[in-house]
Amino acid sequence: MIPEDTVVDPMYFVVLATILFSIGAVAVLLRRNAIVALLGVELMLNASNLLFVAFARSHRDVSGQALAFFVMVVAAAEVVVGLALIITLFRSRQTISLDEPMDLRG
């Protein structure tokens, strides 16, 4: 087993995961490229996964790891559908910019 004094405080992981989550959120808000926005969502999901795993160790409960696994599965499904939507958008408008399909405005 690992000696007690070398274990990293889970609070550090909270800070790290929060920073990663905010970077992902800002990317979703600011970037115009649809694929980059999708990657921002991926980063947010991964930040939450890191917290799940860190808390699973801190609380000695393997359910956290199971939940992280579920998040990964949902992320895979989300990427598949998101990429299909991006390809459909590209076919009809020859662009993957999120700003150019402005004719959705009323």
Partner: peptide
Amino acid sequence: IVTTVYRIELPIRDIGGM
């Protein structure tokens, strides 16, 4: 988030026998 979560006390330990 950081200031809120800092108020709780998280046990600093390894995963034990899990």
